[in-house]
């Protein structure tokens, strides 16, 4: 899953990005609204974390321009905490509002919920042919055996599960797993897929030659 964080406080931006990357998300960092719009023009994101008070272009202006083009879920992260502020933020087209200071687990949970819902499911745990995937705790079980996946591997599996019954191309996977900071080869995706298959021992991921991968239910 690929996330854009738009935040003008550099230390906070770095911290949020690092925390999300450790959870297996691909994260791009923008320090103001116009930078955020530039990123959005290049890549497709599964969710956006947006600060409201920023120089050059603030969160409201960003929402105004962004919402005309995309429906990506947006979570506002703001120090403005009055009801009016929150209502205004949501009315501008945001999907959720979290006030600073916030707890990291809450940010993760809310982002997870936003992404899940945008992909058309609201369950937190899915079981496919005996393989149980918990999006909240980011754990995978096959029967009673727990599978130890890396963050990237889980991320790829998560994407395939959330987009089940659809063919997901390598490029899509690549875009959603690697952010602009990383410079990896696209065949790494194949390596990750084969690792996931080995670890799960249950072949739920099918390869559609020349197209990509699919989990069909």
């Amino acid at each position: 899953m690929r996330i854009l964080v738009v935040e003008d406080e550099p230390d906070l931006l770095r911290t949020i990005a690092k925390a999300l990357r450790e959870k297996g998300y691909a994260v791009d960092e923008a320090t103001n609204g116009s930078e955020g719009l530039s990123y959005a023009a290049i890549s497709r994101y599964d969710a956006i974390v947006l600060d409201m008070m920023m120089p050059v272009m603030d969160g409201a202006q960003f929402l105004g321009s962004f919402r005309k083009l995309y429906s990506t879920p947006i979570l506002i992260l703001s120090a403005r905490d009055t009801v009016a502020n929150r209502v205004n933020g949501l009315n501008l087209g945001a999907d959720d509002y979290l006030t600073k200071p916030f707890a990291m687990p809450e940010l993760f949970a809310r982002l997870q919920a936003l992404i899940r819902r945008s992909l058309g499911t609201s369950e937190n745990i899915t079981t496919i042919r005996g393989v149980t995937i918990n999006f909240g705790s980011r754990l995978v079980n096959v029967g009673s055996r727990s599978v130890d996946l890396t963050a990237k591997e889980f991320s790829i599996l998560e994407m395939l599960v959330l987009k089940k019954n659809r063919v997901v191309t390598r490029t899509e996977i690549y875009e959603h797993v690697y952010d602009a900071n990383e410079d990896s080869m696209s065949n790494l995706v194949d390596v990750h897929i084969s690792n996931i298959r080995k670890k799960i021992e249950e072949d739920i991921i099918e390869t559609r030659r020349g197209l990509g991968y699919i989990i069909s239910v």
């Binding site: 406080e9 906070l12 911290t15 120090a79 006030t99 600073k100 200071p101 916030f102 990291m104």
Partner: peptide
């Protein structure tokens, strides 16, 4: 709140 958020995060 901003520096507080940084410290907490």
């Amino acid at each position: 709140r901003t520096p507080l958020t940084v410290i907490r995060s």
